[in-house]
């Protein structure tokens, strides 16, 4: 699947990270290596506290590993300062958070408009994206007026508004029923395969893994191929 002419969408090499102090110090990432190609949909499963969120944080330039390298489309994001990392995230990475994590004061379309404005992206098409995720009829509604599935769809549209090349998805089905979970993950898979966006999804929900290209398991900070994918 990897095109040799273009660098991987995400390349984590021997990343190590420890959190906490003293006796409470734990290894969040233990020599983690991961490569994700453009258009690939990778799921990472594992129990709570296994290091999934830490992996997502370093993959999204939200934090730096203690050791190792993180490259996104060839750019070593561990060398970026806070401001440069923020600009990089804005233009390159899309985040889909648990339960959408939408801004309560903004309508669905304004969630997208704000993200586009932050990136000074004048070519963004918020209404078109809401249409693409089946939410154009709820464009004028605030998060409080949307169901969990609808909020997650708006969150996905928001993550895509600046045309990112890497989508990092944090527990997208945590608050959804089975049908809605499949709907949301199918939407992400469709986006990855049709527009070439690399997607890394962290999830507890093994029911939705059928839509993913690859599934990895995180245990005690170590990443491995799972023994069994249900």
């Amino acid at each position: 699947m990897t095109d040799h002419a273009t660098p991987p969408a995400l390349e984590i090499i021997a990343a190590g990270l420890e959190l906490g102090d003293g006796d409470a110090r734990v290894t969040a990432l233990d020599n983690v290596t991961l490569t994700v190609a453009p258009g690939e949909f990778v799921a990472i499963v594992g129990p709570s506290g296994s290091g999934k969120s830490s992996l997502l944080a370093i993959a999204g330039a939200l934090g730096k590993p203690d050791s190792g390298t993180v490259r996104i489309h060839g750019t070593d994001v561990t060398t970026l300062g806070r401001s440069a990392a923020a600009r990089f995230r804005l233009n390159t990475i899309g985040f889909v958070f648990q339960s959408g994590n939408l801004i309560p004061a903004l309508t669905a379309v304004d969630q997208l408009r704000l993200t586009a404005r932050l990136a000074k992206n004048r070519n963004a098409d918020p209404l078109g994206l809401l249409e693409a995720v089946g939410m154009s009829h709820r464009a004028g509604n605030r998060p409080g007026q949307l169901s969990g599935g609808e909020r997650q769809r708006v969150g996905i549209a928001r993550a895509l508004v600046n045309n990112p090349t890497l989508l990092l998805v944090d527990e997208p089905t945590a608050a959804l029923d089975r049908a809605r979970s499949h709907e949301v993950v199918r939407l992400l898979a469709d986006r990855a395969h049709r527009s070439g966006v690399a997607v890394v999804m962290v999830t507890h929900d093994r029911d939705v893994l059928e839509h993913c290209d690859r599934v990895l398991e995180m245990t005690d900070g170590r990443l491995s191929e799972p023994a069994l994918v249900v």
Binding site: G60, S83, A86, F88, L90, F97, L114, L118, R158
Partner: peptide, 16 residues
């Protein structure tokens, strides 16, 4: 605070 964290994660600068 959580809303600000989300915006900062998305890429909003502290200055903005």
């Amino acid at each position: 605070t959580h809303e600000i964290a989300v915006l900062r994660a998305v890429g909003a600068s502290a200055g903005y």
